[in-house]
Computed example of a mutant assay.
Amino acid sequence: MTENLEKKAIAAAVIVNDGRVLLVRRKVKEGSLSWQFPAGEIEDGESPSAAAVRETREETGLGVKDISVLGDRVHPNTGRTMFYVACQVVDGVATIVDDDELAEFAWSGGAQLTEYVPYPFFEPVQEYLDIHLSK
């Protein structure tokens, strides 16, 4: 994480349930991002997986468990170090819990995904979505 010492790394939860992925739209864009995965800063001493699980609960009320870290990179639009964590729903229903940060959420199948996110995903994330999303 030496690439970006001034800002903490971000953990994003890639949550697929019933063939659809959970996306949230932030009230304030980060770079050109609007729709994205539930995500937030990794706190000191916290693993990317734990941060993804925590941020999902804080933002959407949805309980998830981590499956695996899909990969990490410095995001080309924001310059932030990102960890992408595949997660599985364990309890709850997605809602907007953090209404200071989030405007809305959506569950998207593969065919509608480009309506929310019109640019390519990080390759390991795209490969995961290609396998798990319904068309």
Rank of each mutant, 00 (worst) to 15 (best):
L133Q: 07
G110L: 07
R26E: 08
D91K: 15
W107T: 07
W107H: 04
V16H: 08
E30Y: 13
Y84N: 09
L5A: 07
R73H: 06
E104D: 13
H132C: 06
L113V: 04
E30R: 14
E104F: 02
V64E: 06
E123Y: 02
V69T: 14
G109W: 01
L70Q: 01
V117H: 01
R26C: 02
G92R: 06
E46N: 01
F83P: 10
R57T: 10
E59C: 06
C87G: 04
G45F: 03
I15C: 06
R57M: 15
T114G: 00
T114Y: 09
F83I: 09
Y116H: 06
Q88F: 00
F83Q: 06
E101A: 11
F122M: 04
S47L: 10
S134H: 12
N4H: 10
L102S: 09
A103C: 09
G40E: 01
K7F: 09
F105Y: 12
G63S: 15
R80C: 13
I67S: 14
A11G: 10
N77I: 14
M1P: 11
K27G: 01
E3W: 05
F121A: 06
V74P: 13
S32N: 11
A9N: 10
L129T: 05
R73K: 12
S108K: 04
A106Y: 01
V21S: 03
A50P: 07
W35P: 03
G79M: 07
V21N: 02
E115S: 15
V89N: 08
I96W: 06
P118H: 01
G31I: 10
R25Q: 08
E101K: 12
K65N: 14
V28W: 07
V74S: 02
T78A: 08
E127C: 01
D72G: 11
N4D: 12
I131E: 13
T60R: 03
